[in-house]
Simulated assay, not measured.
Amino acid sequence: MSDTVIQVAGVTKSFVRGVNAVDDVTLSVARGETLGIVGESGSGKSTLLRMILRLIRPSAGAITLDGRDVWAASGRDLKQARRQMQAVFQDPASSFNPRQNIGTILAAPLEVHGIGDRASRARLIGETLERVGLPTTTITRYPHQLSGGQRQRVAIARAVILRPAVVLADEPTSALDVSVQAQVLKLFREIKDELGLTSVFVSHNLAVIREVSDRVAVMRHGKLIEIGTAERVFSAPESDYTRALIDAVPDPFRRFRAPVELESGS
């Protein structure tokens, strides 16, 4: 089995003639790795994630999952690919049916993929809720009855209940309070390690990306500006743009910056 799970090769997406939202991006994600993708609004990071998820068709290039072309899959192969690759979005409330309780929401992917009977599904739902730090009684509640952090925990539960190989997260903490962000990030790391997941984590927040990523890809105007280990990118950025992003962040990243030498006599 290859060590590369996701391969993005020369991928471009044009929404407007002559303007590329994603421009000839090539990168890979290794098995068990978390790749963080960071950039300002409009950098193309979320568009790239949605192309990997097969929600937006690339204008050019190829995307493979375990060596299989994501966009060439159909029928049973496509269903299997969708089971193996799950997503967590920024606002879980918008991806939940407000008329369904949490038990029904979590049962849906199990039913679609024909996993277990009603009793075994109920057990798995309860176990998964406990894994994400929610009581099993949550199954009877509705999305509007939960806090933002609780809804995001349910979103993570829905993403991992199928035991996928890959989880892709698009700004999953940006709508949460800072204290809740920390809890959700801790949960994300724990579940990723526990289940051996490969993940792609998109955020504009450098502190979040530094916290969860093994490697970091920096995007600007649809282009991949640089990519490397998180420690290297934050301690010795190669591009002026990456350095500017880091320098724009206050105290949390001060320890990653090179010391400023004062002129003698200052």
Rank of each mutant, 00 (worst) to 15 (best):
residue 104 T to V: 07
residue 183 Q to I: 04
residue 216 V to P: 01
residue 234 F to C: 05
residue 256 F to E: 12
residue 120 S to V: 11
residue 148 G to Q: 10
residue 109 P to V: 12
residue 166 V to P: 03
residue 235 S to E: 05
residue 147 S to D: 07
residue 146 L to Q: 07
residue 194 E to Y: 11
residue 241 Y to G: 05
residue 215 R to C: 00
residue 15 F to E: 03
residue 3 D to I: 09
residue 133 G to F: 06
residue 220 R to C: 10
residue 224 L to P: 09
residue 52 I to M: 12
residue 222 G to W: 04
residue 252 P to C: 07
residue 253 F to S: 06
residue 18 G to R: 11
residue 150 Q to M: 10
residue 179 S to V: 03
residue 112 V to N: 08
residue 151 R to Q: 14
residue 3 D to K: 08
residue 199 S to P: 00
residue 61 G to S: 05
residue 43 S to Q: 03
residue 141 R to D: 04
residue 140 T to R: 12
residue 104 T to L: 01
residue 177 D to K: 07
residue 134 L to Y: 05
residue 225 I to F: 05
residue 188 F to Q: 06
residue 7 Q to A: 14
residue 18 G to C: 02
residue 9 A to E: 14
residue 11 V to M: 03
residue 230 A to F: 01
residue 92 P to G: 07
residue 236 A to V: 02
residue 135 P to C: 14
residue 237 P to F: 08
residue 53 L to D: 00
residue 70 V to S: 13
residue 208 V to C: 11
residue 62 A to C: 12
residue 209 I to F: 07
residue 188 F to R: 02
residue 129 L to R: 06
residue 136 T to L: 15
residue 87 A to L: 08
residue 2 S to F: 11
residue 205 N to W: 06
residue 183 Q to S: 14
residue 161 I to Y: 12
residue 54 R to V: 02
residue 27 L to G: 06
residue 30 A to Y: 06
residue 184 V to E: 11
residue 49 L to C: 14
residue 138 T to M: 15
residue 83 R to T: 12
residue 123 R to H: 13
residue 210 R to W: 01
residue 47 T to E: 04
residue 261 E to G: 09
residue 146 L to Y: 04
residue 117 D to R: 14
residue 171 E to T: 02
residue 233 V to T: 04
residue 235 S to Y: 10
residue 179 S to T: 02
residue 104 T to W: 01
residue 263 E to N: 12
residue 223 K to I: 00
residue 70 V to M: 15
residue 200 V to Q: 05
residue 84 Q to M: 15
residue 154 V to W: 03
residue 119 A to H: 14
residue 116 G to Y: 09
residue 133 G to Y: 02
residue 160 V to C: 06
residue 84 Q to D: 14
residue 169 A to L: 15
residue 246 I to D: 02
residue 241 Y to W: 05
residue 142 Y to H: 11
residue 79 K to G: 04
residue 130 E to R: 08
residue 49 L to F: 09
residue 18 G to A: 09
residue 53 L to K: 12
residue 181 Q to A: 10
residue 231 E to M: 04
residue 22 V to G: 00
residue 66 D to P: 07
